[in-house]
Simulated scan of single mutants.
Amino acid sequence: MAEPSWQETIRLRLVERNAKESAYASIIEQYRRLAQQTKLLKERNASLLRAMGTARANPSSSTVFVPGSAEENPVRAAYIASLESQISSLRDELATVYKTQGQNAQRLLAMNETLREKEELSRVDSENLRKAREEIATLRRKVDQHNELMAEKDRTAQILHDEISALQLELSQIEERNQTLTKDNAKLLQRWLDAKQAEVNRMNEANDFYEDMQSRRQAALNSRPIPGNGADDMSDVQSISQSSASGKGEETKETGSTTKKDGTPSPRETGVKLTPNG
């Protein structure tokens, strides 16, 4: 798993600090070695000076080393002590170098292990990045498809909106036409009812007139004396009937109705012709 961001930040800052602090490490080490060598030289020179002082105080002693001589030369002894001190210092320095080399080897192993872990993390991150890029490409394709689909739906919705507007306009026209036809039908129905009412009134008047004539004829027949000649009676009845019929015919001609042979009114033909426009 990848390290948290704050831990990575702290690690990077520590690395930067160590890099800044160790920028002059080599120069400091050189100065340290130079100082140590200077110290050794000073000690050796002091030993040599002490040996020279001893040799001058004792003129019988020789400053030249003679092999196999029993007596020890002070200069040689000082030089040997200086060399032994230098060898000891070099041994210490060599041990320090070996120790530092071992530490560096351990650090190198640790750094190699860290590098391997970092490479593994980098590989995992690279794989995740590749998958993320593929997923982003797939999502972009889906977004493009959704955009095309939405554009197609918008076009379809615009077409439907236009059709709805056209249908609403047509519906409003049809409603206006229906209102006009309703008003025309109401007018035609009123006119038809008025015509029928007038026809009923005329029929009632005709019936009243016919009943009046019948009652008059009956009254005339009842009021006249009965003669001995039956033929005269029949001629009088026929003349009264003809006069009644002629009066009734004129009335029915004016009202547009006719009567049957038995004197009852027949359904007349109405003279009003209804049209769709009234």
Rank of each mutant, 00 (worst) to 15 (best):
E211Y: 10
E211L: 08
E211R: 13
D212A: 12
D212Y: 12
D212E: 10
M213S: 07
M213Q: 13
M213K: 14
M213W: 14
M213I: 07
Q214P: 00
Q214G: 01
Q214E: 02
S215P: 01
S215L: 04
S215M: 03
S215N: 06
S215K: 08
R216W: 07
R216T: 03
R216N: 09
R216G: 03
R217E: 05
R217A: 12
R217W: 02
Q218H: 12
Q218A: 12
Q218E: 12
Q218T: 06
Q218V: 03
Q218C: 05
A219P: 05
A219I: 03
A219N: 11
A219E: 10
A220I: 05
A220C: 02
A220W: 00
A220L: 06
L221F: 07
L221C: 04
L221A: 10
N222W: 02
N222G: 06
S223H: 02
R224M: 01
R224H: 01
P225R: 00
P225L: 01
P225K: 00
P225F: 00
I226P: 11
I226G: 11
I226T: 13
I226Y: 15
I226N: 15
P227I: 00
P227D: 00
P227C: 00
G228Q: 08
G228F: 09
G228T: 07
G228Y: 09
G228V: 06
N229Q: 09
N229I: 02
N229C: 07
N229M: 03
N229A: 06
N229F: 05
N229K: 08
G230A: 04
G230H: 05
G230C: 01
G230N: 05
G230E: 03
A231K: 15
A231T: 10
A231V: 09
A231F: 06
D232Y: 07
D232H: 08
D232W: 06
D233I: 13
D233F: 08
D233C: 06
D233W: 09
D233V: 13
M234Y: 09
M234I: 03
S235H: 15
S235D: 15
S235A: 15
D236P: 08
D236E: 14
D236L: 15
D236T: 13
D236W: 15
D236G: 14
V237W: 07
V237P: 03
V237R: 15
Q238D: 04
Q238M: 04
Q238P: 01
Q238T: 01
S239V: 08
S239I: 07
S239Y: 13
I240M: 10
I240H: 11
I240L: 09
S241D: 05
S241Q: 06
S241E: 04
Q242W: 09
Q242Y: 08
